[in-house]
Design a protein around this nucleic acid. Structure first.
Lengths: 247, 247
DNA sequence: GCTTGACCTTGATCTGGATCAAGCGCGGCC
DNA sequence: GGCCGCGCTTGATCCAGATCAAGGTCAAGC
């Protein structure tokens, strides 16, 4: 069922929308040329699985457009999303040829893939790449730790509010907009995927969304479009410190 | 209340118990000399706070002996541990002078500290250090993601069994012993710290420990000494795949 | 226009783990 | 020796979120 879509034609790194946020952010012109030599694009449509946990993966990649998810499944079907990959995020682990998690496209996705072995060589020879990758990995670790607090200690309502505020902020930062006052965005996930992310059931997600709507914290325009009339009011529902959170 | 203990006298890296697992694992002799020039030891006794979230931290460090914990606290006191740092694990984030989490000593701890600024310079100039740090950070990210599955989807009993099996395995690997059949180890955490780690209350931790004991999965020798008569039986309680888990 | 199926909402009920509360065991200290 | 006080265990009760069950909405396809 998962079928590869028509690949985009290669584009020039100089015009890439994630040029200054992805693993290549710090590269100089000559380093970009090396990356261009080992890169290719692949596209996946919403719902497709990009790779299964345990599969061989002969590339690493940056998300260019769309949203992908990392998730784990237990034998009895319980599922937990463990990473949400937005544009500029990195997929794959250098020096490891098997994937630890299922990677799925939650919206239509375009990846900029690098062949794994030459990419590993670049990590050794191109400090600008390995330094940027270290920084991105540390950021992901911080995000994972904040997620652990959410999963371990937050109420269902706080989980939903936290999730919405994170999506709003990442969406805004991609478009260089501020997150204050009135904010609107599209949810890139189904209710079920949200439940997998938040450690809830889809019914609880739906009920808490309805409850936030009833209380005027959010408005729904269709199922996916969210309007937040007052971002501060949403933040107050997340359970996080008012002032900038943990750091 | 937190008071610095008597510092250990500096020891030679060549005799260091974590020489081949810590951030210095891949260093050559000359690189070790550079590290020795910027290192110093600090010790903390069980229960002391090493640094508070938001504090300035002018060093990074490796855990040499003992166990430290990273944790976050919400305004109303809800607490979640987000990292458990065993010997050879790394504390601190290069290029960031403020700490994101409370770091506390859960047992007596000895740290090998490096002055932060010179360490950052070494990251730029010494690929053996930055490559090892990247690898360790990726390992921590994998561990954090496995922890997210535990927090989001496992039952209290599965959480306890998973925790015990992780401690048993890390304890065994430090002493180069196998984890099959009969295994015994000391818990480095109080029931309350276990609860903070597992997203439970201490009462639930206590009840599930009693339940595993009643079912013969573990034996308790005092409050802290755990004997596992059959490690496979403990593994069967964790909810993980029988065969080696996710990768 | 009708059917189908994916996605979502809402209601009724159940339950695992939280909360509230009491008491035990043991090492440290006067 | 006796009294703390900390860490832990156990019991009774409660409740947030899971589970079970209907039904609604909407776009795609005939």
């Amino acid at each position: 069922m998962p079928q590869r879509q028509q690949a985009y034609s290669p584009v020039d790194c100089a015009q890439c929308p994630i040029r200054h946020r992805a693993v290549c952010a710090r590269c100089e012109t000559d380093e970009l040329e090396q990356l261009e030599a080992i890169k290719y694009y692949r596209s996946f449509s919403a719902g497709q699985t990009i790779v299964w946990a345990g599969d061989k993966m002969d590339f690493v990649a940056s998300v260019v457009h769309g949203v992908a998810a990392l998730s784990q499944t237990m034998e009895d079907g319980r599922r937990q999303m463990v990473g949400l990959l937005l544009p500029s995020d990195f997929i794959g682990r250098p020096n490891r040829d098997r994937v630890s998690y299922d990677v799925t496209a939650t919206t239509d996705v375009q990846l900029c893939c690098f062949r794994r072995v030459p990419f590993q060589d670049m990590l050794v020879n191109t400090p600008h790449v390995s330094q940027r990758l270290l920084e991105m990995t540390l950021d992901e670790l911080d995000a994972a730790r904040e997620w652990m607090l959410l999963l371990g200690r937050k109420t269902a309502r706080e989980k939903i509010a936290s999730f919405l505020s994170i999506i709003a902020r990442r969406d805004a930062s991609l478009q260089a907009r501020a997150t204050i006052g009135r904010v609107a965005f599209d949810l890139p996930l189904t209710r079920e995927a949200m439940a997998d992310y938040l450690g809830l059931t889809l019914e609880t997600v739906s009920r808490q969304m309805s409850s936030l709507k009833k209380d005027g914290v959010i408005q729904l325009d269709g199922k996916r479009r969210i309007v937040v009339p007052d971002f501060e009011a949403l933040m107050a529902e997340t359970g996080d410190d008012a002032d900038g959170g943990v750091y």
